[in-house]
């Protein structure tokens, strides 16, 4: 991994001096120029399109809330992924962990009905975290116990988790006769808290708290130090007396728990039911925002916000002026590529 990822406080300041910020802004600008060209190719006026995009993000309190809700799962899962990558553990299983979190939250609410509101919400979030962590735990056990590469284990378990969601929806959690796979709606009393007027749900708040907490863990505690050393050199970590297995368990369970919460808040705060495929693609977005945030949990906050707002705006651009949805994905991809290219330090 590049030196930029191992930035100590002093080198972070140095990076800032080297003008990382202007480069990021330049990349964003460039990506918008490319996006404008692509939009023009589809026969739309780029300026109208961008206006629609801006309006889609900041046009009304409701739209701001919607953009923040889009950010929330990326932030929760992405800060956990950043922690794993810091330790040199390439966890790409957030997708499956988010799915399991959804099952956990919906399961607690639907199978343990009639609890007072607060208890129910807390229990549902805890259930989501435990399910996500358990899913990451299975991956860790296979990885450490059988020496299967973590990329392979976490990736393959994503597919299994997806099927488990289907199984749950076809069975105990499903809504019979709905026509497609979804759970019974959650009772209104169990919905996640929403901010008045702006309508974002509690997930984003949990996300910010989690990202800041992980940043403190990473920089202010001996465990965080061990994570950073392990990520830089396994040999040095063994020499320092750190247990690679212990650290892998620690970061994987933390990341799994956070991804589980991401899935839980999607179910409790946004969809108000468990839906087939609600988590698809979130895991890879989590990896993207972790990398955009240079694996610095606190910096994952702006990174996730950026991606969330971009997506929200792009979707509204599609709705309002009919830029094809495939193009929206292309624009998103180009923007992320350019930013990543701008932030990687030259050897």
């Amino acid at each position: 991994m590049s030196d930029a990822l191992s930035a100590t406080p002093a080198t972070r300041i140095a990076l800032r001096r080297q003008g990382l910020l202007p480069r990021i802004l330049g990349a964003v600008l460039l990506s918008f120029i490319i996006a404008a060209l692509l939009i023009a190719l589809t026969g739309h006026n780029p300026l109208t399109a961008f206006a629609a995009m801006l309006g889609g993000v900041f046009g009304s309190p409701y739209q701001i809330g919607e953009a923040l809700n889009r950010t929330s799962p990326y932030l929760l899962a992405g800060s956990g992924v950043a922690l794993c990558f810091r330790a040199g553990v390439i966890n790409i299983g957030a997708d499956g962990q988010i799915a399991m979190g959804g099952i956990g939250a919906a399961g607690v609410v639907l199978l343990w009905p009639g609890q007072p509101g607060l208890l129910s919400a807390v229990a549902a979030i805890i259930g989501a975290a435990l399910c996500g962590a358990a899913w990451a735990g299975i991956a860790t056990a296979i990885h450490l116990g059988r020496r299967v590469h973590e990329v392979l284990v976490t990736l393959l378990l994503n597919f299994v988790a997806l099927l488990l969601v289907q199984l749950a929806l076809a069975g105990p959690l499903g809504q019979p006769g709905a026509g497609f796979l979804q759970s019974r709606p959650l009772p209104r009393a169990d919905w996640l808290w929403r901010a008045p007027h702006v309508f974002f749900h509690g997930g984003i708040i949990l996300g910010v708290i989690a990202a800041l907490a992980l940043s403190v863990l990473l920089w202010k505690t001996p465990f965080g130090f061990a994570i950073r050393v392990t990520g830089q050199s396994r040999r040095a970590a063994a020499y320092a007396g750190f247990s690679a297995a212990g650290i892998t368990w620690g970061v994987m369970l933390t990341a799994g728990g956070l991804a589980g919460i991401a899935g839980g808040t999607e179910v409790l705060g946004l969809h108000h039911r468990l839906i087939e495929g609600f988590s698809t693609g979130f895991g890879f977005k989590a990896v993207t925002v972790a990398l955009l945030g240079a694996l610095e949990p606190a910096a994952v906050i702006p990174a996730a916000l950026f991606v969330g707002l971009l997506e929200s705006g792009a979707l509204s651009m599609q709705r309002q002026i009919g830029v094809p949805s495939a193009l929206v994905v292309v624009i998103e991809g180009i923007t992320m590529l350019l930013i990543l290219a701008a932030t990687v330090r030259r050897a």
Partner: peptide, 27 residues
């Protein structure tokens, strides 16, 4: 040594959980 980390971090490499480098669980 961990080449990418600071001199201070390398000096505490094997003693990071002990005083003076850490107290009550905090660096």
């Amino acid at each position: 040594l961990v080449r990418g980390m600071t001199i201070a971090a390398n000096l505490m490499l094997r003693d990071s959980a002990r005083p003076p480098y850490a107290r009550r669980g905090w660096l």
